[in-house]
Simulated assay, not measured.
Amino acid sequence: MTTALITGSTAGIGAAFARRLAARGAAPAGRPGGGFDLVLVARDEERLREQAEQLHDRHGVEVEVLRADLSREEGIAAVEARLSDPRRPVDLLVNNAGFGHRGTYLDVPMSDELEMLKVHCEAVLRLTTAAVRPMRERGRGGVVNVASVAAFLPRGTYGASKAWVVQFTQGAARDLAASGVRLMALCPGFVRTEFHQRAGMDTGNIPEWMWLDADRLVAAALKDLARGKAVSVPDARYKTLMGLAKLAPRNALGGISSRTGRRFGPR
């Protein structure tokens, strides 16, 4: 049986990955037609255990829970240790944990900005490294680093941190191209999850057509991973928008992202 470790697993995109992988698996890391055993990582242990029980009962997979706060050194270290354990190899890592801030630059306390960088950048770097080293030795495996279309827009620390995720993942994928290990940055648009409510963001001005379904998003992302894509924007609407964004002046894009949900955090 193959194993996937998912951070931020209890809601939104992370929960959708857990459901999908438990139900049917996915290439390249999983065996065809079989579900993944799971390691679920989040801060809320009660929600983790409820999720684990539901997935085990529904799909018959083994589900391990690991409570960890990735904004803290001990949380990152705990997940690193699990990924590095040679007795319990992980075949697919989904770095999904993340959050947004309400407000613009200078409205957000510096401590909160640094916490975001720790979760979005340091944790992604360290967990990817911990997972990829043994994967390379085995000659197989996959990593999905959840970024955002905000990576392509000039908008504060959130967008900057997600741009780092995209660039890091692309570079690592290139370096490991011949190893059998696939890395992909997933760049979703606005997805109906708890993300915006937790950040206190007003989403009333976001058009209905911009919202994506998490389960469909994950299905498309896993297909892109199987195809060997290093960056996935898994929706035709957002592919078109990002194509247009490359042609628009950067100051105009900043204005658009300001009007769309204050801080463009579409996870």
Rank of each mutant, 00 (worst) to 15 (best):
V166E: 00
L92Y: 05
R182H: 15
L125Q: 01
E115Y: 02
V166P: 01
L176N: 06
L125F: 00
I206L: 08
A68E: 09
L176I: 01
R192C: 01
R136M: 14
A131Q: 10
A27L: 14
R20L: 12
K162A: 06
A29K: 13
D215G: 02
T104M: 13
R227E: 15
T169I: 05
A248S: 13
L244W: 12
G14L: 11
A52I: 10
E46K: 10
A248L: 15
V143T: 06
N95F: 06
V79G: 14
G103E: 01
V94F: 03
V146A: 07
S71Q: 14
A16V: 09
R20Y: 12
W164N: 00
T129N: 13
A150V: 02
L217D: 04
L186T: 06
R192T: 09
E73L: 12
V41Y: 12
A52G: 09
G243I: 03
R182A: 14
A77D: 12
F152G: 09
Q170I: 00
E80G: 11
C121G: 02
I76H: 09
R136A: 15
S179N: 08
R138V: 06
C121W: 01
G141I: 11
R58L: 09
L92D: 01
M242E: 05
P134I: 12
T260N: 13
I256H: 05
R47F: 10
S111V: 14
G103S: 07
E64S: 13
I206W: 07
D37T: 04
S258G: 04
